[in-house]
Structures are given as C-alpha cells and as structure tokens.
C-alpha cells in the first residue's frame, strides 16, 4: 500500500500541483485550473504505468489529447488551454539538461545518445497528442452526425 502510494499517487499529486501552478502563469481561471491539473496527473500516471520510455510518452500524450478534447467539448472552450498545460510535465527538460551536461564534460557518445532520446520524446509527445486529437475528432463527428440523423 505504501509502495503504491509512493510510486504512483505521490508523483501524480505533484504533477497535478505543478500544472495548477502553470495555470497561474497562463491566466486560466475557475474550473479550468482543476481540469488542467487532472490532465497533467493523468498524463503522468500513464507515463509511469508504461515505464517512462518513449512509447510511454506517446501513450501519455494520446491520453492527454483525448482527455482535453473531451473536456473542451463539455465546457465549450478552445482545447488549447488544457492540452498546453497538461503536456508540460512530459516535455523533456531533463533531456536538454543532461545532453548539455555530457556535452560540457566532453562525453560525445552519451551526448548524442541523450540528444536523440530528447528529440524522440518531443516527437512522441507531438505525434501522440496529434493522432489522439485527430482520431477523437473523426470518431466524434461521425457519432454526432449519426446521432442527429436518428
């Protein structure tokens, strides 16, 4: 139980709070704060469950994409806000830093390795959210129009 709390619940709570912090920076008010925070926590949970790989980042971004589209439909607001904030914890800031550390230390192989991993993470995030959003829209409009015809 304690292990579960430490490995999953605590990081997700931190991701939630970090995202809420960012909502203050991007001027998001009201329920939007909560939605952004939950989105960030959800993304981080998926990322943890799949073991912090590039594929995990892809899945996490996809989950965030679907979640933000859903919330935007519910609240009739632009999707940008939710997607923007919820994806932030996953952006590879650590990768940029470690790549530079290896570069300064003159460890060329480790530098290139980290650099490629960082690019991979960024690409996975972008493609994951993009695919999920597009797929959601296609399915949603399809279902919506079919529901209306009946």
């Amino acid at each position: 139980m304690t292990a579960f709390f430490l490995t999953y619940l605590l990081p997700c709570a931190c991701a939630f709070l970090a995202c809420v912090g960012f909502t203050l920076v991007f001027n998001i008010h009201g329920v939007g704060k909560l939605i952004c925070g939950v989105g960030g926590a959800l993304g981080w949970l998926v990322y943890l469950l799949w073991g912090k790989t590039i594929f995990a980042a892809f899945l996490a971004a996809a989950a965030i994409g679907v979640y933000s589209e859903l919330m935007a439909r519910v609240r009739r607001c632009p999707v940008t806000a939710y997607l923007l904030v919820a994806l932030l914890p996953l952006v590879p800031g650590g990768g940029i830093y470690y790549a530079m550390r290896h570069c300064v230390a003159g460890e060329n192989e480790a530098f290139l390795d980290t650099l490629l991993h960082t690019f991979g993470m960024a690409a996975a995030l972008a493609v994951g959210a993009m695919m999920a959003s597009s797929l959601f829209r296609t399915i949603y409009t399809h279902l919506y129009h079919r529901g209306r015809r009946r």
């Binding site: 970090a18 203050l24 920076v25 914890p89």
Partner: peptide, 14 residues
Amino acid sequence: VGHAIAAAFFAPLF
C-alpha cells in the same frame, strides 16, 4: 507563486 509552485512540484517528479 505559480512559477514557484510549478518548479517546486517538478522536483519530486524527477
């Protein structure tokens, strides 16, 4: 405060 909170709660994630 937003900047501070965001930075602070990224630390446990890393």
